[in-house]
Amino acid sequence: MNVDDTNDTDDLILKLLETDNPTASKLIYTYHYKAVYTYIKDFISDHDAAKDIIQELFTAIWIKRHSLNLIKPLRSYLLSAAHNKAINYLRDKGRQNRIMGEIVNRSGNGKIAPPADAELQASELEIQIRRALSRLPIHAKRTFLMSRKQGMTYKEIAEHLHVTEKAVEKNMSKALSLLRQYLGIYLKMLVIALME
Protein backbone atom coordinates (compact mmCIF):
# COMPACT_ATOMS: atom_id res chain seq x y z
CA MET A 1 0.00 0.00 0.00
CA ASN A 2 1.47 3.37 -0.98
CA VAL A 3 1.32 6.60 1.01
CA ASP A 4 -1.73 7.92 -0.89
CA ASP A 5 -3.66 4.70 -0.28
CA THR A 6 -2.74 4.85 3.40
CA ASN A 7 -3.95 8.47 3.64
CA ASP A 8 -7.23 7.58 1.89
CA THR A 9 -7.76 4.58 4.19
CA ASP A 10 -6.96 6.64 7.29
CA ASP A 11 -9.39 9.36 6.12
CA LEU A 12 -12.11 6.74 5.66
CA ILE A 13 -11.43 5.15 9.08
CA LEU A 14 -11.56 8.53 10.82
CA LYS A 15 -14.87 9.43 9.12
CA LEU A 16 -16.37 6.06 10.01
CA LEU A 17 -15.28 6.45 13.65
CA GLU A 18 -16.91 9.91 13.78
CA THR A 19 -20.20 8.48 12.50
CA ASP A 20 -20.09 5.44 14.83
CA ASN A 21 -19.82 3.04 11.91
CA PRO A 22 -18.38 -0.31 13.12
CA THR A 23 -16.74 -0.83 9.72
CA ALA A 24 -13.99 1.44 11.09
CA SER A 25 -12.89 -1.34 13.46
CA LYS A 26 -12.76 -3.85 10.62
CA LEU A 27 -10.64 -1.49 8.51
CA ILE A 28 -8.24 -0.78 11.38
CA TYR A 29 -7.83 -4.51 11.83
CA THR A 30 -7.43 -5.20 8.09
CA TYR A 31 -4.90 -2.47 7.37
CA HIS A 32 -2.94 -2.20 10.62
CA TYR A 33 -3.09 -5.50 12.54
CA LYS A 34 -0.03 -7.10 10.93
CA ALA A 35 2.25 -4.10 11.48
CA VAL A 36 1.14 -3.66 15.10
CA TYR A 37 1.50 -7.39 15.80
CA THR A 38 5.01 -7.47 14.32
CA TYR A 39 5.98 -4.44 16.40
CA ILE A 40 4.64 -5.92 19.66
CA LYS A 41 6.36 -9.26 19.01
CA ASP A 42 9.69 -7.38 19.12
CA PHE A 43 8.98 -6.81 22.83
CA ILE A 44 6.89 -9.78 23.87
CA SER A 45 7.61 -13.35 22.82
CA ASP A 46 4.17 -14.58 23.96
CA HIS A 47 1.94 -14.88 20.85
CA ASP A 48 -1.32 -14.94 22.86
CA ALA A 49 -0.33 -11.95 24.98
CA ALA A 50 0.55 -9.97 21.84
CA LYS A 51 -2.86 -10.78 20.32
CA ASP A 52 -4.58 -9.79 23.60
CA ILE A 53 -2.76 -6.45 23.64
CA ILE A 54 -3.85 -5.70 20.07
CA GLN A 55 -7.45 -6.70 20.82
CA GLU A 56 -7.44 -4.45 23.89
CA LEU A 57 -5.92 -1.56 21.90
CA PHE A 58 -8.35 -1.82 18.97
CA THR A 59 -11.33 -2.20 21.32
CA ALA A 60 -10.24 0.87 23.31
CA ILE A 61 -10.07 2.92 20.10
CA TRP A 62 -13.67 2.01 19.30
CA ILE A 63 -14.91 2.65 22.85
CA LYS A 64 -13.04 5.97 23.18
CA ARG A 65 -13.50 7.05 19.55
CA HIS A 66 -15.17 10.35 20.48
CA SER A 67 -12.67 11.35 23.14
CA LEU A 68 -9.47 10.36 21.30
CA ASN A 69 -7.85 12.97 19.12
CA LEU A 70 -6.82 10.59 16.33
CA ILE A 71 -4.83 12.06 13.47
CA LYS A 72 -3.03 10.66 10.43
CA PRO A 73 -1.04 8.58 10.04
CA LEU A 74 -3.04 6.19 12.21
CA ARG A 75 -0.27 3.60 12.14
CA SER A 76 2.06 5.94 14.04
CA TYR A 77 -0.57 6.35 16.77
CA LEU A 78 -1.24 2.60 16.87
CA LEU A 79 2.46 1.70 17.13
CA SER A 80 3.02 4.25 19.89
CA ALA A 81 0.00 2.98 21.85
CA ALA A 82 1.10 -0.63 21.28
CA HIS A 83 4.58 0.24 22.55
CA ASN A 84 3.13 1.62 25.79
CA LYS A 85 0.88 -1.41 26.25
CA ALA A 86 3.80 -3.80 25.66
CA ILE A 87 5.89 -2.00 28.30
CA ASN A 88 2.94 -2.11 30.71
CA TYR A 89 2.53 -5.83 30.04
CA LEU A 90 6.19 -6.50 30.86
CA ARG A 91 5.93 -4.40 34.01
CA ASP A 92 2.73 -6.14 35.16
CA LYS A 93 4.12 -9.60 34.41
CA GLY A 94 7.20 -8.79 36.49
CA ARG A 95 5.00 -7.53 39.31
CA GLN A 96 2.93 -10.75 39.25
CA ASN A 97 6.10 -12.86 39.36
CA ARG A 98 7.38 -10.80 42.28
CA ILE A 99 4.11 -11.22 44.22
CA MET A 100 4.13 -14.96 43.60
CA GLY A 101 7.71 -15.09 44.86
CA GLU A 102 6.69 -13.27 48.03
CA ILE A 103 3.79 -15.67 48.59
CA VAL A 104 6.13 -18.65 48.24
CA ASN A 105 8.61 -17.03 50.64
CA ARG A 106 5.91 -16.35 53.25
CA SER A 107 4.59 -19.88 53.00
CA GLY A 108 7.91 -21.21 54.29
CA ASN A 109 8.92 -22.81 51.02
CA GLY A 110 10.88 -19.80 49.88
CA LYS A 111 13.56 -21.40 47.80
CA ILE A 112 13.23 -18.95 44.92
CA ALA A 113 13.89 -15.25 45.06
CA PRO A 114 11.43 -12.87 43.41
CA PRO A 115 12.66 -11.31 40.16
CA ALA A 116 14.11 -7.81 39.99
CA ASP A 117 11.70 -4.90 39.64
CA ALA A 118 10.05 -5.24 36.21
CA GLU A 119 9.49 -1.49 35.84
CA LEU A 120 13.22 -0.95 36.18
CA GLN A 121 13.86 -3.77 33.71
CA ALA A 122 11.46 -2.30 31.13
CA SER A 123 13.03 1.13 31.55
CA GLU A 124 16.51 -0.34 31.22
CA LEU A 125 15.42 -2.26 28.13
CA GLU A 126 14.23 0.97 26.49
CA ILE A 127 17.58 2.62 27.27
CA GLN A 128 19.48 -0.35 25.85
CA ILE A 129 17.36 -0.34 22.68
CA ARG A 130 17.97 3.39 22.16
CA ARG A 131 21.71 2.88 22.66
CA ALA A 132 21.76 -0.05 20.25
CA LEU A 133 19.82 1.95 17.63
CA SER A 134 22.24 4.88 17.98
CA ARG A 135 25.13 2.52 17.16
CA LEU A 136 23.61 1.37 13.86
CA PRO A 137 24.96 2.73 10.56
CA ILE A 138 22.70 5.55 9.33
CA HIS A 139 21.14 3.66 6.39
CA ALA A 140 20.48 0.56 8.49
CA LYS A 141 18.97 2.67 11.29
CA ARG A 142 16.74 4.65 8.92
CA THR A 143 15.50 1.46 7.22
CA PHE A 144 14.83 -0.27 10.55
CA LEU A 145 12.87 2.69 11.98
CA MET A 146 10.81 3.14 8.80
CA SER A 147 9.92 -0.55 8.88
CA ARG A 148 9.28 -1.06 12.59
CA LYS A 149 8.15 2.35 13.83
CA GLN A 150 6.24 3.56 10.77
CA GLY A 151 5.13 0.13 9.54
CA MET A 152 6.35 0.72 5.99
CA THR A 153 6.92 -2.19 3.61
CA TYR A 154 10.28 -2.76 1.92
CA LYS A 155 8.77 -1.50 -1.32
CA GLU A 156 7.50 1.71 0.33
CA ILE A 157 10.89 2.29 1.97
CA ALA A 158 12.68 1.73 -1.34
CA GLU A 159 10.42 4.25 -3.08
CA HIS A 160 10.79 6.78 -0.27
CA LEU A 161 14.60 6.51 -0.16
CA HIS A 162 14.99 6.12 -3.95
CA VAL A 163 16.88 2.83 -3.62
CA THR A 164 16.22 -0.75 -4.67
CA GLU A 165 14.25 -3.19 -2.54
CA LYS A 166 17.42 -5.31 -2.45
CA ALA A 167 19.26 -2.40 -0.77
CA VAL A 168 16.42 -2.10 1.77
CA GLU A 169 16.61 -5.84 2.50
CA LYS A 170 20.38 -5.62 2.95
CA ASN A 171 20.11 -2.65 5.33
CA MET A 172 17.31 -4.32 7.32
CA SER A 173 19.30 -7.54 7.59
CA LYS A 174 22.33 -5.59 8.80
CA ALA A 175 20.23 -3.66 11.35
CA LEU A 176 18.64 -6.83 12.78
CA SER A 177 21.97 -8.64 12.92
CA LEU A 178 23.65 -5.78 14.77
CA LEU A 179 20.71 -5.30 17.15
CA ARG A 180 20.80 -9.00 18.03
CA GLN A 181 24.52 -8.65 18.64
CA TYR A 182 24.17 -5.48 20.77
CA LEU A 183 21.12 -6.62 22.74
CA GLY A 184 21.55 -10.41 22.79
CA ILE A 185 23.04 -10.86 26.24
CA TYR A 186 20.84 -8.19 27.80
CA LEU A 187 17.63 -9.68 26.36
CA LYS A 188 18.55 -13.18 27.56
CA MET A 189 19.16 -11.83 31.07
CA LEU A 190 15.81 -9.98 31.00
CA VAL A 191 13.88 -13.06 29.84
CA ILE A 192 15.50 -15.21 32.56
CA ALA A 193 14.68 -12.57 35.21
CA LEU A 194 11.04 -12.28 34.08
CA MET A 195 10.57 -16.05 34.09
CA GLU A 196 11.95 -16.58 37.58
Rank of each mutant, 00 (worst) to 15 (best):
I54V: 11
A193Y: 12
E102C: 03
L161Y: 06
G151K: 01
E196Q: 14
A113Q: 12
T59V: 15
L14N: 04
R131E: 15
T59I: 06
R65N: 11
H139P: 00
Q181M: 11
S45N: 09
V104S: 11
L194I: 02
T143Q: 00
D8E: 15
R142V: 05
K111Y: 09
A158H: 02
A24F: 09
S45W: 14
N88W: 03
E56N: 04
I61E: 04
D46W: 04
K15A: 06
E159R: 07
K72L: 05
L176H: 10
K174E: 11
L68I: 04
M100I: 07
D52T: 09
F43D: 00
K51R: 07
L133K: 15
D4P: 03
Q150V: 05
K174Y: 05
I28E: 01
K41I: 12
M189H: 14
R95Y: 09
Y154I: 01
E159T: 05
M100Y: 12
N88D: 12
I103K: 13
Q150Y: 12
R95S: 12
T143Y: 00
Q128G: 06
K149D: 08
E156T: 02
V36Q: 00
K141A: 08
V104D: 03
K41R: 12
R130L: 14
Y31G: 06
M146S: 03
L190Y: 05
P137L: 13
S67N: 14
L12N: 06
L16R: 07
V163F: 02
A86T: 07
R95M: 13
N109I: 09
K170S: 07
W62M: 11
P114V: 07
K34M: 09
S25M: 00
A50E: 07
D5V: 11
I71L: 12
T6P: 01
S123R: 13
L79G: 01
R75M: 10
I53A: 02
K166R: 10
V191F: 10
E102F: 04
I53V: 01
E56I: 06
D4L: 10
L179N: 00
D46H: 06
M1V: 15
I13D: 00
H160L: 13
R75E: 01
T23F: 15
R75I: 15
G101R: 09
D117I: 07
S123T: 14
R148Y: 11
